[in-house]
């Protein structure tokens, strides 16, 4: 599964700000940490503000602060602000007949199964769980 750039930037922003919930993170600092365009990141962060997951604090020392509930907010919810997961339509038009329809129907069943697993996995992992996973995988 490959995420779109906007989605990935949103996850960077959410995970970074949620790891330091008492601090305002300037866009430039987050962009520098992850090696991404500050302009592109700023656009994504504004979308997260509109979704109520971060707030923008203006002025000196300002930046973005996480306002969501890290134990409740899931990866799926963040990702689906930007793209659908398992959005593929695996159905076969009713008018289609013959061998092609049979093959497509069977393939659709398999791909729908993969989509369901992807959604279930992303729905089961909260931002707090992700922060723990990052911590656990940090090289000693």
């Amino acid at each position: 599964m490959k995420l779109q750039k906007n989605t990935l930037y949103a996850l960077y922003g959410i995970l970074d700000s949620a790891s330091r919930p008492d601090e305002q993170m300037p866009t430039g600092e987050i962009a520098k940490t992850y090696g991404v365009s500050p302009h592109h990141l700023a656009k994504v962060l504004r979308a997260l503000v509109r979704a109520g997951l971060v707030e923008s604090v203006r002025g000196v020392g300002g930046g973005y602060r996480f306002t969501g509930n890290a134990r409740r907010l899931t990866l799926l919810e963040v990702i689906e602000l930007f793209e659908r997961v398992g959005a593929g339509d695996h159905g076969v038009p009713a008018r289609r007949r013959g061998r092609r329809a049979e093959v497509e129907r069977a393939l659709g069943t398999v791909f729908a199964e993969i989509d369901e697993m992807s959604r279930a996995t992303l729905r089961s992992i909260s931002i707090a769980t992700m922060l723990k996973l990052i911590e656990r995988q940090r090289p000693a």
Binding site: R71, M117, A120, T121, R123, S124, A128, T129, K132, R136
Partner: peptide, 18 residues
């Protein structure tokens, strides 16, 4: 069950992986 979001999230929070 994969639609048991509550308990799945709990086990994930405890560090369980697929």
């Amino acid at each position: 069950a994969r639609d048991n979001h509550l308990v799945l999230s709990f086990f994930r929070s405890q560090g369980m992986m697929a």
